[in-house]
Amino acid sequence: MKQFRKKLAFFAGAMNSRVRENLVETWSNDSEIIVHRGRMKTPYSEALLDSKYCIHAKGFEINTARIGDAIYYGCVPVILSDHYDLPYADILNWESFAVIVSSLDIPKLKQILQAIEYHHYVKLQNNVMQVKKHFQWNSFSKDFDIFHMVMYELWIRRSHLRHIY
């Protein structure tokens, strides 16, 4: 089977956290893990399409589109953070389509990703394509799209919301 994704992993983003700074410092000179500070000169989408894994390193901001971008382009997300509340965690089994790595393991990231056997990677990537519909916004809502997922999350948490007021 021909491998279309040539790079092992990719990250590009602002240096607004120690985790991101550590990631870029550790892997800035690597040929398989591609990391960029800030904006890139080439299209972001090309880098996502060219990488097997797309790294999500938590910054100082509460949210980011990086996970959704990775999923949209069929790139297996690597969640590089500790104690991160993932979207739809009550609904989706993130370990079936993403790799979750402690920020302490940044120096071992390449070793961790290379240790994932090809058939397991293919399974993760196929599952990314299956969950993709849950992260898509449609002009007219479709079953199980992002609108339905958010509504379901709110419904699950309704008992918690009642106690706030």
Rank of each mutant, 00 (worst) to 15 (best):
residue 35 V to K: 01
residue 35 V to A: 01
residue 36 H to F: 15
residue 38 G to P: 10
residue 38 G to E: 08
residue 39 R to N: 12
residue 40 M to Q: 12
residue 40 M to H: 01
residue 43 P to H: 05
residue 44 Y to N: 12
residue 50 D to C: 09
residue 50 D to S: 12
residue 53 Y to M: 08
residue 54 C to Q: 07
residue 55 I to G: 04
residue 56 H to W: 14
residue 59 G to D: 09
residue 61 E to N: 13
residue 64 T to I: 02
residue 66 R to W: 03
residue 68 G to Y: 08
residue 72 Y to A: 06
residue 73 Y to R: 02
residue 75 C to Q: 05
residue 77 P to H: 06
residue 78 V to G: 02
residue 78 V to M: 07
residue 79 I to V: 14
residue 80 L to F: 04
residue 80 L to Q: 03
residue 81 S to G: 14
residue 85 D to I: 15
residue 85 D to Y: 11
residue 86 L to Y: 04
residue 86 L to S: 04
residue 86 L to E: 10
residue 86 L to K: 03
residue 91 I to A: 01
residue 92 L to H: 02
residue 93 N to W: 01
residue 95 E to W: 00
residue 95 E to M: 08
residue 96 S to E: 15
residue 98 A to P: 05
residue 98 A to L: 09
residue 98 A to H: 04
residue 98 A to K: 02
residue 100 I to C: 10
residue 103 S to D: 14
residue 104 L to W: 03
residue 104 L to H: 09
residue 104 L to V: 01
residue 105 D to K: 12
residue 106 I to C: 02
residue 107 P to V: 00
residue 109 L to I: 00
residue 110 K to G: 07
residue 110 K to L: 06
residue 110 K to M: 05
residue 111 Q to T: 09
residue 112 I to M: 02
residue 112 I to G: 01
residue 113 L to Q: 04
residue 113 L to I: 02
residue 114 Q to P: 00
residue 115 A to N: 14
residue 115 A to G: 09
residue 119 H to D: 15
residue 119 H to M: 13
residue 123 K to V: 05
residue 124 L to E: 07
residue 124 L to M: 06
residue 125 Q to T: 01
residue 126 N to W: 04
residue 126 N to V: 00
residue 128 V to I: 11
residue 136 Q to F: 11
residue 139 S to I: 14
residue 141 S to M: 11
residue 141 S to Y: 02
residue 142 K to N: 11
residue 143 D to A: 12
residue 146 I to G: 00
residue 147 F to G: 02
residue 147 F to N: 11
residue 147 F to A: 09
residue 150 V to M: 13
residue 153 E to M: 04
residue 154 L to G: 04
residue 156 I to V: 11
residue 156 I to D: 04
residue 162 R to A: 08
residue 165 Y to W: 07
residue 165 Y to S: 07
residue 165 Y to D: 08
residue 165 Y to R: 09
